[in-house]
Design a protein around this nucleic acid. Structure first.
Lengths: 109, 109
DNA sequence: ACAACCTACAACCATCAGGTTGCATGTTGT
DNA sequence: ACAACATGCAACCTGATGGTTGTAGGTTGT
Protein backbone atom coordinates (compact mmCIF):
# COMPACT_ATOMS: atom_id res chain seq x y z
CA UNK A 1 0.00 0.00 0.00
CA UNK A 2 1.50 3.30 -1.02
CA UNK A 3 1.26 6.38 1.12
CA UNK A 4 -1.12 8.03 -1.36
CA UNK A 5 -3.39 4.98 -1.31
CA UNK A 6 -3.50 5.06 2.46
CA UNK A 7 -4.42 8.73 2.43
CA UNK A 8 -7.15 8.06 -0.07
CA UNK A 9 -8.46 5.26 2.13
CA UNK A 10 -8.43 7.68 5.06
CA UNK A 11 -10.46 10.20 3.05
CA UNK A 12 -12.94 7.62 1.80
CA UNK A 13 -13.66 6.00 5.17
CA UNK A 14 -13.71 9.34 6.92
CA UNK A 15 -16.22 10.71 4.41
CA UNK A 16 -18.45 7.68 4.98
CA UNK A 17 -18.18 7.89 8.77
CA UNK A 18 -20.89 10.49 9.10
CA UNK A 19 -24.59 9.87 9.00
CA UNK A 20 -25.47 13.09 7.20
CA UNK A 21 -22.83 12.49 4.56
CA UNK A 22 -24.03 8.92 3.94
CA UNK A 23 -27.54 10.29 3.52
CA UNK A 24 -26.35 12.95 1.10
CA UNK A 25 -24.48 10.28 -0.82
CA UNK A 26 -27.62 8.15 -1.11
CA UNK A 27 -29.51 11.09 -2.55
CA UNK A 28 -26.89 12.06 -5.08
CA UNK A 29 -26.40 8.43 -6.10
CA UNK A 30 -30.10 8.33 -6.93
CA UNK A 31 -29.74 11.44 -9.07
CA UNK A 32 -28.28 14.91 -9.35
CA UNK A 33 -29.15 17.41 -6.66
CA UNK A 34 -28.10 20.99 -6.20
CA UNK A 35 -26.33 21.82 -2.96
CA UNK A 36 -29.14 24.08 -1.82
CA UNK A 37 -31.74 21.45 -2.63
CA UNK A 38 -29.75 19.03 -0.44
CA UNK A 39 -29.44 21.66 2.27
CA UNK A 40 -33.21 22.06 2.44
CA UNK A 41 -33.45 18.41 3.49
CA UNK A 42 -31.48 18.78 6.69
CA UNK A 43 -31.94 20.62 9.93
CA UNK A 44 -28.66 22.50 9.69
CA UNK A 45 -27.26 25.52 7.94
CA UNK A 46 -26.54 25.66 4.23
CA UNK A 47 -22.85 26.08 5.01
CA UNK A 48 -22.78 22.88 7.07
CA UNK A 49 -24.29 20.88 4.21
CA UNK A 50 -21.97 22.56 1.72
CA UNK A 51 -19.01 21.44 3.83
CA UNK A 52 -20.33 17.87 3.94
CA UNK A 53 -20.61 17.87 0.15
CA UNK A 54 -17.06 19.23 -0.06
CA UNK A 55 -15.79 16.37 2.12
CA UNK A 56 -17.52 13.85 -0.12
CA UNK A 57 -16.14 15.59 -3.19
CA UNK A 58 -12.56 15.63 -1.84
CA UNK A 59 -12.86 11.89 -1.21
CA UNK A 60 -14.03 11.41 -4.80
CA UNK A 61 -17.39 10.02 -3.74
CA UNK A 62 -19.26 12.92 -5.30
CA UNK A 63 -18.63 15.07 -8.34
CA UNK A 64 -20.16 18.43 -9.11
CA UNK A 65 -20.98 20.18 -12.33
CA UNK A 66 -22.03 23.74 -12.72
CA UNK A 67 -25.39 24.62 -14.20
CA UNK A 68 -25.93 28.34 -14.06
CA UNK A 69 -25.96 29.42 -10.44
CA UNK A 70 -26.43 25.89 -9.20
CA UNK A 71 -23.81 23.24 -8.44
CA UNK A 72 -25.27 19.86 -9.26
CA UNK A 73 -23.80 16.99 -7.29
CA UNK A 74 -23.93 13.35 -8.26
CA UNK A 75 -22.58 10.22 -6.61
CA UNK A 76 -19.59 8.40 -8.03
CA UNK A 77 -20.32 4.72 -7.88
CA UNK A 78 -16.76 3.86 -8.92
CA UNK A 79 -15.46 5.39 -5.70
CA UNK A 80 -17.83 3.20 -3.73
CA UNK A 81 -16.52 0.18 -5.60
CA UNK A 82 -12.97 1.18 -4.75
CA UNK A 83 -13.94 1.13 -1.06
CA UNK A 84 -15.39 -2.33 -1.59
CA UNK A 85 -12.03 -3.34 -3.06
CA UNK A 86 -10.27 -2.17 0.06
CA UNK A 87 -12.56 -4.42 2.08
CA UNK A 88 -11.93 -7.28 -0.31
CA UNK A 89 -8.21 -6.92 0.34
CA UNK A 90 -8.85 -7.18 4.06
CA UNK A 91 -10.97 -10.24 3.57
CA UNK A 92 -8.23 -11.73 1.39
CA UNK A 93 -5.84 -11.35 4.32
CA UNK A 94 -8.31 -13.25 6.45
CA UNK A 95 -8.65 -15.98 3.83
CA UNK A 96 -4.87 -16.23 3.81
CA UNK A 97 -4.98 -17.12 7.48
CA UNK A 98 -7.09 -20.15 6.65
CA UNK A 99 -4.81 -21.30 3.88
CA UNK A 100 -1.83 -20.87 6.18
CA UNK A 101 -3.53 -23.12 8.73
CA UNK A 102 -4.22 -25.56 5.91
CA UNK A 103 -0.54 -25.46 5.06
CA UNK A 104 0.34 -26.22 8.66
CA UNK A 105 -2.04 -29.16 8.64
CA UNK A 106 -0.69 -30.32 5.29
CA UNK A 107 2.79 -30.27 6.79
CA UNK A 108 1.76 -32.77 9.48
CA UNK A 109 2.38 -36.30 8.26
CA UNK B 1 -32.07 2.50 8.43
CA UNK B 2 -32.64 2.50 12.15
CA UNK B 3 -30.80 4.83 14.46
CA UNK B 4 -28.79 1.94 15.94
CA UNK B 5 -27.74 0.80 12.47
CA UNK B 6 -26.55 4.30 11.61
CA UNK B 7 -24.53 4.46 14.81
CA UNK B 8 -22.98 1.12 14.01
CA UNK B 9 -22.12 2.36 10.52
CA UNK B 10 -20.54 5.44 12.11
CA UNK B 11 -18.42 3.24 14.36
CA UNK B 12 -17.38 0.90 11.56
CA UNK B 13 -16.35 3.57 9.09
CA UNK B 14 -14.71 5.65 11.78
CA UNK B 15 -12.68 2.66 12.96
CA UNK B 16 -11.54 2.04 9.39
CA UNK B 17 -10.67 5.70 8.79
CA UNK B 18 -7.25 5.45 10.39
CA UNK B 19 -4.13 4.03 8.82
CA UNK B 20 -2.77 2.49 12.01
CA UNK B 21 -6.09 0.83 12.77
CA UNK B 22 -6.37 -0.61 9.27
CA UNK B 23 -2.87 -1.98 9.65
CA UNK B 24 -3.69 -3.52 13.02
CA UNK B 25 -6.80 -5.03 11.49
CA UNK B 26 -4.76 -6.64 8.70
CA UNK B 27 -2.47 -8.22 11.25
CA UNK B 28 -5.20 -9.60 13.45
CA UNK B 29 -7.11 -10.86 10.43
CA UNK B 30 -4.05 -12.88 9.51
CA UNK B 31 -3.89 -14.33 13.01
CA UNK B 32 -4.18 -13.66 16.71
CA UNK B 33 -1.82 -11.10 18.20
CA UNK B 34 -1.46 -9.87 21.74
CA UNK B 35 -1.89 -6.15 22.27
CA UNK B 36 1.71 -5.73 23.35
CA UNK B 37 2.96 -7.70 20.33
CA UNK B 38 0.98 -5.30 18.14
CA UNK B 39 2.31 -2.32 20.06
CA UNK B 40 5.88 -3.35 19.35
CA UNK B 41 5.17 -2.93 15.62
CA UNK B 42 4.41 0.77 15.79
CA UNK B 43 6.33 3.87 16.62
CA UNK B 44 3.93 4.98 19.34
CA UNK B 45 3.19 4.19 22.94
CA UNK B 46 1.58 0.99 24.11
CA UNK B 47 -1.38 3.01 25.36
CA UNK B 48 -1.96 4.54 21.93
CA UNK B 49 -2.05 1.11 20.29
CA UNK B 50 -4.25 -0.23 23.04
CA UNK B 51 -6.73 2.57 22.35
CA UNK B 52 -6.72 1.78 18.64
CA UNK B 53 -7.50 -1.84 19.42
CA UNK B 54 -10.29 -0.66 21.71
CA UNK B 55 -11.81 1.42 18.89
CA UNK B 56 -11.69 -1.60 16.58
CA UNK B 57 -13.21 -3.75 19.29
CA UNK B 58 -16.06 -1.31 19.99
CA UNK B 59 -16.85 -1.32 16.27
CA UNK B 60 -16.96 -5.11 16.33
CA UNK B 61 -14.10 -5.43 13.86
CA UNK B 62 -11.88 -7.13 16.42
CA UNK B 63 -12.56 -9.47 19.30
CA UNK B 64 -10.29 -10.25 22.20
CA UNK B 65 -9.86 -13.30 24.32
CA UNK B 66 -7.85 -13.56 27.46
CA UNK B 67 -4.93 -15.94 27.70
CA UNK B 68 -3.16 -15.52 30.99
CA UNK B 69 -1.77 -12.05 31.17
CA UNK B 70 -2.17 -11.47 27.46
CA UNK B 71 -5.18 -10.22 25.52
CA UNK B 72 -5.21 -11.92 22.14
CA UNK B 73 -6.96 -9.96 19.42
CA UNK B 74 -8.33 -11.40 16.21
CA UNK B 75 -10.14 -9.82 13.28
CA UNK B 76 -13.85 -10.38 12.73
CA UNK B 77 -14.38 -10.99 9.07
CA UNK B 78 -18.16 -10.87 9.50
CA UNK B 79 -17.92 -7.23 10.51
CA UNK B 80 -15.98 -6.48 7.36
CA UNK B 81 -18.68 -8.18 5.34
CA UNK B 82 -21.31 -6.06 7.05
CA UNK B 83 -19.45 -2.97 5.89
CA UNK B 84 -19.45 -4.40 2.39
CA UNK B 85 -23.21 -4.79 2.71
CA UNK B 86 -23.55 -1.13 3.54
CA UNK B 87 -21.67 -0.31 0.36
CA UNK B 88 -23.86 -2.72 -1.59
CA UNK B 89 -26.91 -0.82 -0.39
CA UNK B 90 -25.41 2.39 -1.67
CA UNK B 91 -24.65 0.84 -5.00
CA UNK B 92 -28.21 -0.48 -5.15
CA UNK B 93 -29.44 3.09 -4.79
CA UNK B 94 -27.25 4.03 -7.71
CA UNK B 95 -28.56 1.19 -9.84
CA UNK B 96 -32.11 2.32 -9.16
CA UNK B 97 -31.42 5.92 -10.05
CA UNK B 98 -33.27 5.86 -13.38
CA UNK B 99 -36.53 4.52 -12.08
CA UNK B 100 -36.74 6.93 -9.20
CA UNK B 101 -40.00 8.72 -8.56
CA UNK B 102 -39.72 8.97 -4.79
CA UNK B 103 -37.09 11.68 -5.00
CA UNK B 104 -39.17 13.84 -7.29
CA UNK B 105 -41.90 13.76 -4.65
CA UNK B 106 -39.46 14.18 -1.77
CA UNK B 107 -37.91 17.18 -3.49
CA UNK B 108 -41.20 19.08 -3.44
CA UNK B 109 -42.08 19.60 0.21
C1' DA C 1 8.53 -13.84 47.21
C1' DC C 2 9.29 -10.80 43.84
C1' DA C 3 10.79 -8.71 39.63
C1' DA C 4 9.31 -8.40 35.08
C1' DC C 5 5.57 -8.27 32.10
C1' DC C 6 0.82 -7.31 30.12
C1' DT C 7 -3.22 -4.82 30.25
C1' DA C 8 -6.44 -1.21 31.33
C1' DC C 9 -7.69 3.26 32.38
C1' DA C 10 -7.31 8.22 33.86
C1' DA C 11 -5.59 12.84 33.14
C1' DC C 12 -3.75 15.85 30.15
C1' DC C 13 -2.62 18.27 25.67
C1' DA C 14 -2.79 19.67 20.70
C1' DT C 15 -5.23 19.17 16.67
C1' DC C 16 -9.24 18.07 13.99
C1' DA C 17 -14.30 17.81 12.93
C1' DG C 18 -18.79 19.53 12.75
C1' DG C 19 -21.49 23.12 13.59
C1' DT C 20 -22.50 28.34 13.48
C1' DT C 21 -22.63 33.31 11.32
C1' DG C 22 -21.16 36.62 8.11
C1' DC C 23 -19.53 38.17 3.73
C1' DA C 24 -18.22 38.23 -1.28
C1' DT C 25 -19.30 36.81 -5.75
C1' DG C 26 -21.88 35.11 -9.56
C1' DT C 27 -26.70 34.05 -11.77
C1' DT C 28 -31.57 34.60 -12.64
C1' DG C 29 -36.11 36.50 -13.25
C1' DT C 30 -38.86 40.72 -13.37
C1' DA D 1 -31.28 47.68 -12.86
C1' DC D 2 -32.03 45.16 -9.03
C1' DA D 3 -33.80 41.94 -5.68
C1' DA D 4 -33.60 37.25 -4.69
C1' DC D 5 -31.10 33.20 -4.98
C1' DA D 6 -26.93 29.80 -5.02
C1' DT D 7 -22.43 29.04 -3.88
C1' DG D 8 -17.97 29.24 -1.58
C1' DC D 9 -15.02 30.57 1.96
C1' DA D 10 -13.26 32.53 6.34
C1' DA D 11 -13.56 33.12 11.31
C1' DC D 12 -15.10 31.30 15.28
C1' DC D 13 -16.78 27.91 19.03
C1' DT D 14 -17.17 23.35 21.11
C1' DG D 15 -16.63 18.52 21.46
C1' DA D 16 -14.14 14.46 19.78
C1' DT D 17 -9.78 12.27 18.36
C1' DG D 18 -5.07 10.74 18.67
C1' DG D 19 -1.26 11.11 21.05
C1' DT D 20 1.38 11.40 25.65
C1' DT D 21 2.67 9.93 30.70
C1' DG D 22 1.46 7.88 34.95
C1' DT D 23 -0.77 4.51 37.88
C1' DA D 24 -2.80 0.30 39.38
C1' DG D 25 -3.79 -4.61 39.19
C1' DG D 26 -3.41 -9.32 37.42
C1' DT D 27 0.08 -13.12 35.55
C1' DT D 28 4.41 -15.44 34.99
C1' DG D 29 8.97 -17.27 35.61
C1' DT D 30 12.85 -17.76 38.72
Amino acid sequence: MTDAEEKRADALFHALADRTRRDILRRVLAGEHSVSALARSYDMSFAAVQKHVAVLERAGLVSKRRSGREALASGEVEAIRSVASLLDELEAVWRGRISRIDDLLADRP
